[in-house]
């Protein structure tokens, strides 16, 4: 079963995602996409690690190229998150930009085929009216299109609001 989780910053996506994964048997794979940029991201990474510490997750660091991941045996994958993955695939350290849309579609689908269940965390980055650069707007557009395609393909989609899951499609696994 494939499930997409969306919602704004600090809305409880990670902890809900982990509670979903706990409904499924081992093995549980955590695909970590966040690059560390210093103290703030280190703190966030540490907070996420602590949440997973007792839950039997095996962590796979993959800031890009999730298509290269080979799961030795099926299981449940928590990929967190599509927003970081898209940014990492789109912009390199030198600030060069490329269109990552097809690559991400292909690679997330490839990962999903190896897993019994995929929980994909994303974010709703299109809900503001700030005056962004062309490049940032291309990022917002790319992530929005990816969200829509995965939502259409997946079994269930939830929006998290103050930690409360709002069902947009499908239903929770038993």
């Amino acid at each position: 079963m494939n499930i997409l989780l969306t919602g704004g910053s600090g809305c409880g996506k990670s902890s809900f995602a982990e509670s979903l994964v706990m409904k499924f048997p081992l093995p549980r794979w955590y695909v970590a996409t966040m690059q560390s940029y210093g103290a703030e991201s280190e703190m966030k990474i540490a907070r996420h690690r602590a949440m997973r510490a007792t839950k039997g997750f095996e962590t796979i660091e993959s800031q890009t190229d999730v298509g290269k991941i080979r799961l030795p045996r099926g299981g449940t994958v928590l990929l967190e998150c599509l927003c970081n993955l898209t940014a990492n695939e789109m912009f390199d350290a030198e600030g060069n930009e490329r269109d990552p849309y097809e690559k991400i579609l292909r690679e997330v689908r490839a990962l999903s085929r190896q897993a019994d269940n995929l929980i994909l965390v994303t974010n709703d980055v299109g809900s503001d009216a700030e005056d962004y650069s062309e490049s940032t707007l291309r990022y917002v557009d790319t992530l929005g299109r990816l969200n829509a395609v995965f939502a259409a393909e997946f079994d269930a989609v939830f929006e998290l609001v103050c930690g409360i899951p709002i069902c947009l499609k499908g239903e929770l696994p038993q």
Partner: peptide, 8 residues
């Protein structure tokens, strides 16, 4: 207000 949406 819900303030978490939009670009980080």
């Amino acid at each position: 207000d819900e303030v978490g949406s939009g670009v980080i």
